[in-house]
Design a protein around this nucleic acid. Sequence first.
DNA 1: CGCCAGGGGAGCT
DNA 2: AGCTCCCCTGGC
Length: 292
Amino acid sequence: MNKLPVCDETNSLYELQEYGENRIAVQAENFSLEQICCSGQCFRMKRIKENHFSVISGDRYLEAEQHGKTVIFHCGKEEFFDYWEDYFDLKTDYKTWISGINPNDGYLRKAARTAWGVRILRQDLWEMIVTFLISQQNHIKRISRSIELLCRTYGKECISAKGTVYYGFPAPGTLCGLPEDALMECNLGYRSKYVVRTAGAVVSGETDLRKIEKMSYKDARTELLKCFGVGEKVADCICLFALHKLEAFPVDTHIRQALDAHYKRGFPNRRYKECRGVMQQYIFYYELHGQM
DNA sequence: CGCCAGGGGAGCT
DNA sequence: AGCTCCCCTGGC
């Protein structure tokens, strides 16, 4: 087992060890697979055993396990640096943000202490557009099932290195030709036409995903709002979970309730300007899982 | 069994 | 800005 430092000492935020060909072990702070799994931003991550998870992103499949601070990714070095390191946002320093929380804000401190291992993933843009179109007026459980069904029906069947069968996320081209109500069979309900029409806009070039990926938060948000079915909340979720725009602060019913209860004068947007999205995730996680 | 909410948004006024 | 309708599963 040879130990390799990742980047140069100055900006190394985690320590990497390589186990043979298909295992990468990482020591990371503020990282919890379990918390990421149930943080409600990724609907294709599942726990398969205690401390052992699978993730599908686009047509990729990964298994990973965690024991304390050690996270073992079941992939080679190339794939790790190529994709999963960024996907799990391992190069971002969350500790600094947590220590930047106002010491007088007991609620936010408690939320961050509970959601200590949540990360803002860098997920695929098209996948997030569809996912959060489906999320509206919907339960997390049902969203997961709808997406699973959508992928099973229209996604590419793939087989992992270990022989696990999984389904990739259907590309815009696969969905754009369908009748607008075709996805009601995947339990999308009235959201079916949102997905089909937006797929059409992507295929025609009216919505240019490559351009959106390069835009500022404000511009990307404005562009996404032009998609049929995308409102302010969904646009902010896409900006946060795909484009990693940490200025985005999606306000849904849960966050609304928390803001009403704990921030009667409004959320301190200025203080957290650069990391509002991270704080949103801490609050969201805390409201869902924290207060037992 | 009925009722209601669940990570909203479009299309009206 | 405010109202209605879109849909449907799970929980009570």
